[in-house]
Amino acid sequence: MWDYTDKVMDHYEHPRNVGEIENADAVGEVGSIACGDALKLTLKIKDGKIADAKFKTFGCGSAIASASALTEMIKGKTIEEVKKITNNDIVSFLGGLPKEKMHCSVMGAEALEEALAFYRGEKKVADPDNVGEVVCKCFNVTDQKIRRVALANNLHTVEEITNYTKAGGGCGLCVDQIQALLDDVWKNENTGKREHVKPKLSFLQKVKMIEKVINDEIRPILNRDGGDLELVDIQGNKVVVRLFGTCQGCHASQLTLSGLVEHKLKELVDDSLEVVEHEG
């Protein structure tokens, strides 16, 4: 049995905005019965705002919940606001989805995207998922879609791609091809391509974020092994820390500093940070 959040169960049991708007201004239809899930989203748009949204879904509990959540999220919002909604926003709204069910949230985001394209008068031709070469023949997923979803959700493994797009989840013949696509997508990973994701921070913001990451992310890990860590000072990009408990004098403490502390801070705050141990 899947581990669904209460919010998912609530939206599954009491789906909001079920139905079809007649003479809708925008229609998005994605999926198919063969794939096991399908979603039809209809929108009424007035003065640049989503005046009404309704959906019909063929699919599992999380597909129904994702579609219901989406309609709640977009009603009353402007087109500009709605454009920015991603599948991750649907997942957050629902308090999380099992990883194997991420494709349900992707289906929601795609239906929205298609509906907005419909509204702009672009119709099917502009559907980004129908462009490109079909990689997964079982679920009809193109290379373009795999690239797009991988980038949008920071996906690095074939398994993640399968959870988000279903690609590779059928006969499995395309698994190598998906891996090659991922290799290509992330080949520039360490050359600064992803840097733009992190906003430029003021010094104060940086200090606050470092403190937060140390307290929320790093110390709990050290505490598990009976160790601890204290932030002593921040000098430019140099983060000075002191190790306690079992960490202190542990022969692996250098490894802890560079492998865990510095890695986490670089990943979550700023790539240029350097961690040193307080002397004396």
């Binding site: 049995m1 049991e13 699919g59 599992c60 509990g61 399968t162 279903k166």
Partner: peptide, 29 residues
């Protein structure tokens, strides 16, 4: 109708059954 959604609703009524649907299997087929 989709089997997993069906099972969830039955389960709510304390009825245990199973389905051949993809969504309930963990695999996608």
């Amino acid at each position: 109708v989709e089997g997993e959604a069906l099972l969830l609703a039955l389960s709510k009524e304390n009825i245990c059954a199973s389905t051949g649907s993809a969504c309930a299997s963990g695999s996608l087929q």
